[in-house]
Design a protein around this nucleic acid. Structure first.
Lengths: 134, 134
DNA sequence: CTGGCTGCAAATCTTTTGCATCCTG
DNA sequence: CAGGATGCAAAAGATTTGCAGCCAG
């Protein structure tokens, strides 16, 4: 696929499968999710390859690493600034459209270098919220 | 110590050592940090005890679990709402005083149950920022 | 005195690494 | 055809668990 050429790394069949799995994926998959999905096409792919590809994508700014799941790392092909909610019941992560403005006091701006900031929420997703209230 | 009576769990010497280590601690220690610290007083304490105590404290709302370190879980005895910055260089976590107001759209409020929300920042802490610019 | 807590060791889970071989550009 | 990518297996790290014995309330 030419659409992946611009990433600037060797486009192997395994990497293509990973990229296609991630493309437009808003499920915030873990390395294991990605591994198990690509396994269907490439029964010999290894975690080493998956992690190496994820690292290469992160380095090129094509993938975000999410740490709101306390159990393992998750990945997000959407690198635009947005907010997440971690569902404490089903452990899934959801994109949520919220608005906010952060005021960084002068003391913070002077002393820290802030490269990223985003809002993390936790609670219950729509389907778990319904089950909860029954 | 009577100040820990109100937690509502058995106050063993090991737990007291953990509580004293955590009290007022704003270094956001990991389980390993806590383990190694208590080890000085109790050379036979185990990770099982540390993790069991941390779980008991979390359940009673006396301890917050932080997931902004991508490598391991960190803990914070300050359970009031506040913001963190993870330093990408030294891997430490800092409390930062920032102000913000989040607007949750009607669609979000209707469909999700949001128990917590906070701001996560990453970048460089004061000392790493200085080294960086040299 | 009893249920919860402790400590040990083993298990589990996630992520990383060394290395020989392979294949994209 | 060279350097980066792959796959295997082993290692490293973090966290959990089973269980026998212990002790705070």
């Amino acid at each position: 696929m030419n659409k992946y050429r611009e990433i600037g790394f060797k486009l192997t069949p395994q990497r293509l499968a990973i990229l296609e799995y991630l493309d437009g994926n808003n499920n915030h998959p873990s390395a294991d999710d990605i591994y198990r999905s690509v396994l269907k096409k490439f029964p010999t792919i290894s975690f080493a390859t998956v992690y190496a590809t994820l690292t290469a994508l992160k380095k090129r700014g094509k993938l975000a690493e999410i740490s709101s799941d306390p159990y393992k790392r998750r990945y997000d092909p959407d690198t635009r600034k947005h907010s997440h909610l971690h569902c404490d019941a089903c452990n899934r992560i959801f994109d949520i459209p919220i608005e906010y403005t952060i005021v960084f006091p002068e003391s913070v701006r002077q002393n820290f270098y802030i490269s990223h900031s985003h809002v993390e929420c936790s609670g219950l997703c729509p389907s778990c919220k319904i089950h909860e209230s029954k």
